[in-house]
Amino acid sequence: MKGDQAFDLVHDSQLIYREMLEAVSRPGTISNIKTVLTKLPDSPVNPGLIGMALTILDGETSFAVVPEFSKLSSYIQQKTGSRVETLDQADYILMHDLSLVPSFSEVIETIKKGTLIDPHDSATLLIQVKSFSATNGAPYILSGPGIASESQVPIEGLPENWEKTRQRANKEFPLGIDFFFVSQAAEILSIPRTTRIRKA
């Protein structure tokens, strides 16, 4: 690997994991994992997306890449020992370029959402977006557990009406899917299934 230091799957992933936990516990809060991503100079896509994947994937988990990108899949397999699975069976879905996804809603409809016996047997989405910029991003209002009243966050780079697609997928709580977003600046944002969201 190029660079002065290699990404440490123990220490560096722990840092990212802490930021991901913070994002989950406080939906709408934007965390930054940029400090460790200089150690991923050979990542085939946004290092922020790769950093999260290296943190949560291991030999006991599976993933799918949307759209398909063999270089990315091979990279993650080599680094984590995780296995590639079909979209409807994968534990984690990595969406690295939404502009190349023909139907966002079709992807959401296909991925697993858990069962009443095991609602956590559902997929988690890791989605690359452009930014959380108030200048360019569409503003959304979040409410629910972990949010005192309401939280407003702008997200740039998502398909039109994606939040309605998410709402349909999560309508039978506790079944549903959890979302992580990562910006080009390696900022992360979580919107768990328990969070309500609407356009501002």
Rank of each mutant, 00 (worst) to 15 (best):
D121K: 13
L125F: 04
L72H: 03
E22D: 13
G157L: 06
A90Y: 03
K39I: 07
Q128N: 13
M1Q: 09
Y75N: 04
V66M: 02
P119Q: 12
L49D: 03
S122H: 14
S62R: 12
V107Y: 09
R198D: 01
W162K: 04
D12V: 06
L87H: 02
S122I: 04
D121N: 13
P159G: 04
I33P: 11
V45Y: 03
P41K: 11
I155K: 06
N170D: 01
T61C: 07
I30C: 10
R83D: 02
K2V: 14
Q152I: 10
V153F: 05
A6T: 12
F69P: 00
E109L: 15
T115M: 12
R196P: 00
L100S: 12
K112D: 02
T124C: 08
K112E: 09
G176R: 05
D88Q: 10
E60N: 12
S74L: 10
I93A: 07
D178T: 08
G176N: 08
R83Y: 02
I16Y: 06
F132P: 13
I56C: 06
I93D: 06
I33L: 09
S82T: 05
S190F: 04
L37E: 09
L15V: 08
F181C: 03
Y75F: 14
G59N: 10
T29I: 09
E85M: 08
K164E: 15
E172W: 01
Q14P: 00
E172S: 09
P47W: 08
L37G: 03
T61I: 08
S99C: 00
I155E: 02
E106P: 00
L21C: 10
R18I: 02
A23D: 00
